[in-house]
Simulated assay, not measured.
Amino acid sequence: MAIDVAHYEGREQAFVKHTFLDKYLPALIGKVCSRYDEFVYVDGFAGPWKSAAGENFDDTSFGIALNHMTSQRLLYLSRGRNVRMRAFLVEKDPSSFAQLQRAVALYPKIEITPLNGKMEDHVAAIVASIPQESFSFTLIDPKGFPAIGSMMPLLQRQNAEALVNFMFDFANRFGGTDLIPALEEWLSTSAPDDWRKRIKAVSGEQRERLYEELAVQALRQTSGYVYAPVITVDKVLHNRPLYKLIFLTRHSEGLKVFRDSERSALDAQAITRSASKAKKREACTLMGDLFADGFDAVPNDRSTQVIRRSEEEASRRLQAMLTTANSGFCKWKECWPPILEELSVTHSWLGRHVNDRRKAGQISAPAWPSERTQIPRDEQQLRWNG
Rank of each mutant, 00 (worst) to 15 (best):
Y225L: 08
E311M: 07
E311I: 00
K235F: 10
P229H: 10
L248S: 09
R308A: 14
R308E: 10
I271K: 08
Q305C: 05
K280I: 00
T285D: 10
R220A: 02
L245E: 04
S276I: 02
T249M: 12
P229T: 11
L219Y: 05
M287K: 05
R263P: 00
Y225K: 13
I231C: 03
E311N: 04
R281L: 14
F247S: 10
D296W: 08
G294P: 08
R259W: 06
K277T: 04
L266G: 01
E313V: 05
V236H: 09
D267I: 13
I307L: 14
T222F: 05
K256V: 14
K235G: 11
C284E: 15
A265D: 05
T232K: 06
L286W: 01
D234T: 08
E212D: 09
V233E: 00
R220F: 04
G288Q: 07
Y243L: 03
R259Y: 06
P241Q: 13
S223M: 02
F258S: 05
D293F: 09
G254S: 08
L245S: 11
V298G: 06
V298T: 14
S310H: 03
L286Y: 03
F291L: 12
S261I: 01
A283W: 12
D267R: 15
K244F: 08
L290A: 12
Q305D: 13
V236K: 04
A215W: 07
D296F: 14
V230N: 03
A270Y: 04
Q217C: 10
A275M: 06
E213C: 13
L266H: 00
L248C: 13
L237R: 10
A278I: 03
A292M: 02
R309K: 09
P229V: 11
